[in-house]
Amino acid sequence: MAEQKIIYQLNHVSKIFRDKNSEVIAVDDISLEIHEGEIFGIIGMSGAGKSTLVRMLNRLEEVTSGEVIFDGKKLGELSPKETRATRKQIAMIFQSFNLLSQKTVLANVEIPLKLIGVSKEERKEIAREKLKIVGLEDKVNAYPAQLSGGQKQRVAIARALAMNPRVLLCDEATSALDPKITEEILSLLQDINERLNLTIVIITHEMNVVEKICNRVAIVDNGKLAELGEVKDVFAKPQSDAAKHLILPTIAGDNPFDETNKNCYRIVFNGRAATEPVIANLVKRTGESVNILSANTRSIGGIGYGQMIVEFPEDPTAHKVVLDYFTSIGIQPVAIDKEVVI
């Protein structure tokens, strides 16, 4: 992605929750930039401070120190009125959807428009149009209770789009959904990002969410920024312990390799190549094969995303042949051993 305008600039942002006898440093001196039009992931373990961080992006939470600059404006310096006006450019969707249960789908999507005084007819028209984008035009008269989780999140997305925002903040937007529906929602977000050039900030604790749609990612650990960079770089070579924790266990979940095995490699597919031909071609070209211990990959439009843990041949020559093959097609296998898996 080419150099772009910076929409969010965070300078040494910290958030400390204090009460009488305790103090929690939820966000600890985080500085980062979010580019206009990108999908930016913020990932971390539970309690890492992700929600707190994202809530400072629309000033639902006040910073304790540091500054959040949105589109050149310091959020901390805005008046209440200016804050509300700014929030209208920053839509947010939530894990729990937060739809109004007593209003129809259409009325839910109309709300942000009602807030700014759009006329009834115009509201309905815009709301219908947004529901069409999320594929729910046939549910306008339904109530949220009649929808599935995925459909509710679609309504929330339509409601967010009705504001015509510059940024969409997603706090664990797919965490309440099963993997298939998560996929669908992520594809929708990706589609919206491309079509509308809408900047999306995604908070998640699931690596596969980041892996699937984010351009860049920030790994937050214990309130601190542990790692920041292009998803493909961070995934290929996680540097920090936090990153390794987050990236590797997704495969090690049903830990297939034993610690002594020095022939295990992690292969990351970052969208440059299709997964299937890579393995098939290995056999075709080199006559060697690898043992796939675990795979967490998916193919979108024939392009592979995700990662695999493979076992290379034990024989040193064959081992090298396989290694060279991967390198030649632009994939850098990362040796995995006890030390890396932690």
Binding site: L60, R84, R87, M92, P112, L115
Partner: peptide, 15 residues
């Protein structure tokens, strides 16, 4: 969380 959603849309207290 309903209030939070409202706030995130820039609603004022009355709204």
């Amino acid at each position: 969380r309903i209030t939070e959603a409202a706030k995130s849309m820039g609603a004022n207290s009355w709204q």
